[in-house]
Structure formats: C-alpha cells, structure tokens
C-alpha cells in the first residue's frame, strides 16, 4: 500500500472503508448539505426510535476529508439520543479522526450540517418543531 501525503491513517481508513454508506429504506428524517458547485454534497438519512438514532446512512460527493468525516459522523451518532447527536460538533468529528489538514476543516462542517438538517426533518415530520 502506498502512503498518501495529506491524510493520517485514520482518515484514510474511513475514506477507504466508509461506514454506513447508502440510504435507509424507511427513514424518519433525511437531510442534505453542501452543493455540487462547491464540490461537496452530503445526504444523510436517520431512523429514530424513542428519541434514539437507531440507524443512519450517508452518501457523499466530495473529497477524501468529506467522505471520512461523513463516515465518522454516522459512527459517532449511531445509538445516541437526538440531543446527544446534536452536541456532536464538527470539531469533535475531526478530533475523532485524529485531525484534518487545516484547509480541510471546512469539509467537516458538511456532515454536521447534513445531520442537523436530517434531525430538523425528523422533528418536522413528528411535529416537534
């Protein structure tokens, strides 16, 4: 395996083997963030039972950091309550990945925004907002 320059092993692991890729068949909330013009877009779907995120899936068009942070975010919020999930910041995700190059920090915001958008959607559907 060739060493890649920009990212650490943990980021590369999530880029190579992203967790929770895809779409849920019957999601309770769906959110998107970013846009193709900026070069990244993320779509996240969540399944919620008793206020807990039981399952989560994502699809991302974006660079290595965007894919890795998407993957890590889904891993971190799975099994958490909605409020706990909302408290997971992009910084926490970047830290869990062992750090991102400074120029890539904005990519981590994408996953946070997509997750919030999915939670908003869930709350709307359930008349909670």
């Amino acid at each position: 395996m060739t060493q890649t320059g920009a990212y650490n092993d943990k980021v590369m692991d999530h880029f190579r083997n992203p967790r929770n890729v895809g779409e849920l068949e019957h999601p309770d909330g769906v959110g998107t963030a970013g846009n193709p013009v900026c070069g990244d877009i993320m779509e996240i779907s969540i399944q919620v039972e008793d206020d807990v995120i039981k399952d989560v899936r994502f699809r991302t068009f974006g660079c290595g950091a965007a894919i890795a942070t998407s993957s890590m975010t889904t891993e971190m919020v799975k099994g958490k309550t909605i409020d706990e999930a909302l408290a997971v910041s992009n910084k926490a995700v970047a830290e869990a990945l062992g750090g991102l190059p400074p120029i890539k920090m904005h990519c981590s915001v994408l996953a946070e925004e997509a997750l919030r958008s999915a939670i908003d959607d869930y709350r709307r559907r359930n008349g909670k907002s």
Binding site: T2, Y7, F15, R16, A66
Partner: peptide
Amino acid sequence: EGEGLLLNLDM
C-alpha cells in the same frame, strides 16, 4: 470528486 479519484489511484 477528483480528490477521491486521485487518492484511490494513489493507493
């Protein structure tokens, strides 16, 4: 996205 392609090719 190009970077993803580049990283995969680099691997």
